[in-house]
C-alpha cells in the first residue's frame, strides 16, 4: 500500500482501532451537552459523537488555551510553567474547517519567536478529522479556501461513505505512524462514491462570501459605522472563531497569565495615557474584518477565516460577516 492511498474499513473496526490507538492518550472529541455539540476532553472513544452539526466551540482552545500560566514570579526568580504536554493527545473528528484553522494559526504561532505553549500542544497532539457530509446553514468554507472534505491540518482524515463504512486518508507521516496500515485498499467503486459524496457535500454549502479585491479602499467609508451599529461588543464572534488569536498578558498575583482577548473590547488598544487609535466601536469591528480579510492575507498569505460561520450563528444581534464583507464593493466604497 503506497503512502496517501485511501483505505476502507467498517465502523466497528474503525471504532476498535481508534480505541486501541488512543490508549494512554488524552482524548478530545465532540460530545452533546444540553442538546448542542461541543469539543471537550472525553474519557473514551465511546463517548464521542459520530454525527454532529457544527460544534459551538472549535478545537482552538486545546492548542491556544483560554488561559495559560506562563510563569511564577518568586523571590528566587522566575519559574516558567511547562504546558501540560507530557501526555500524548488525540483530537477525534475535527471538522475540516477547524483543522484547517490550525494551519492558519500555525503561521503566526509557529513562525519566528515560536509560542512555547502552542508549539508544545501542537507537537503532542494527533488530529483525526471527519469530513462533513453536508454543510450547515451558516457554512461558507468554499469561499475562503476550505472544503467540507478538506484535509489541511489533519493527520488522518476519515469520511463516512455509507453502509457504515469509512474511507481513511493518511494525511501526514505522523498520522500514518499513529494509525499504521489499516483497512483494505479502496477500490474504484468506493473511490468513485467518495468523489460523488465530496461533490454533494460541496454543493450543500449554500453561503458564499465575496471578498472584495480592494478592501483597503473602503477603510474610510461610513459603511463600517452602519454595519457595526448593533454590535454589543460582547466578543463572542472572536472567542468562537477558530482563527482569532489575540491575547492579553496579565498578572494574577505572582502568576503571569496569558489569556484570550478580543478586539471588540474598548480596552483592547487603549493606552494608559488614554490615547486609543481604535476608540470607536466601528473602528474595532473594522479592525476585525480587516485583520481577517486584508492584513492576515498580506502578512501570512491566507485569510484569517475558515468559513465555519460560528460568528454569525452565535452573534446575539445577528451581525453577519458574510453579508457585510460581500457587500463592501456595492455599499462600502466611499
Amino acid at each position: 500500500m503506497s503512502f496517501g492511498e485511501k483505505t476502507v474499513l467498517g465502523k466497528d473496526e474503525l471504532f476498535r482501532i481508534l480505541k486501541s490507538i488512543s490508549e494512554g492518550c488524552e482524548i478530545i472529541g465532540p460530545v452533546m451537552e444540553d442538546g448542542k455539540p461541543y469539543f471537550r476532553p472525553v474519557e473514551g472513544v465511546e463517548d464521542v459523537a459520530w454525527d454532529f452539526d457544527t460544534t459551538v466551540n472549535g478545537i482552538k482552545e486545546f492548542f491556544f488555551p483560554r488561559r495559560s500560566v506562563l510563569y511564577e514570579q518568586t523571590n528566587d526568580g522566575i519559574r516558567p510553567f511547562d504546558p501540560e504536554t507530557d501526555k500524548k493527545r488525540i483530537v477525534l473528528f475535527s471538522r475540516p474547517c477547524d483543522a484547517r484553522a490550525l494551519t492558519i494559526t500555525d503561521r503566526l504561532f509557529m513562525g519566528e519567536n515560536q509560542d512555547r505553549v502552542y508549539g508544545a500542544l501542537r507537537a503532542n497532539t494527533v488530529v483525526v478529522g471527519l469530513s462533513c457530509e453536508k454543510a450547515g446553514p451558516h457554512c461558507f468554507c468554499l469561499s475562503v479556501g476550505g472544503s467540507p472534505f478538506g484535509t489541511e491540518g489533519m493527520d488522518v482524515s476519515i469520511t463516512a461513505v455509507g453502509d457504515d463504512e469509512y474511507v481513511l486518508d493518511m494525511v501526514t507521516d505522523r498520522g500514518k505512524a499513529f494509525f499504521g496500515n489499516r483497512g483494505r485498499k479502496a477500490d474504484s467503486k468506493r473511490l468513485q462514491e467518495f468523489e460523488t459524496l465530496k461533490k454533494r457535500a460541496e454543493e450543500s454549502v449554500e453561503r458564499t462570501m465575496r471578498i472584495p479585491k480592494d478592501l483597503p479602499s473602503a477603510f474610510e467609508s461610513d459603511y463600517w459605522k452602519e454595519v457595526s451599529a448593533a454590535c454589543l461588543k460582547c466578543g463572542v464572534c472572536t472567542y468562537l472563531c477558530p482563527t482569532c488569536h489575540c491575547f492579553d498578558i496579565v498578572d494574577e498575583g505572582f502568576y503571569r497569565v496569558r489569556c484570550w482577548d478580543t478586539c471588540s473590547f474598548d480596552t483592547f488598544s487603549r493606552m494608559a495615557s488614554g490615547e486609543d487609535p481604535r476608540k470607536d466601536k466601528y473602528m474595532r469591528y473594522r479592525q476585525r474584518v480587516y485583520h481577517k480579510f486584508s492584513y492576515y492575507k498580506e502578512n501570512f498569505g491566507v485569510y484569517g477565516c475558515v468559513g465555519c460561520g460560528r460568528c454569525t450563528k452565535h452573534c446575539p444581534v445577528k451581525t453577519d460577516i458574510v453579508e457585510i464583507v460581500s457587500s463592501v464593493d456595492e455599499k462600502g466604497m466611499p
Partner: peptide, 18 residues
C-alpha cells in the same frame, strides 16, 4: 507608540493597517 502585550507580533493589537 501603540498598546502592546507580547512585543513579538502575536497578540494582535498594535497594528496600523497591516
Amino acid at each position: 507608540e501603540m498598546k502592546m502585550k507580547c512585543g513579538i507580533g502575536k497578540c494582535g493589537r498594535c497594528n496600523i493597517g497591516p
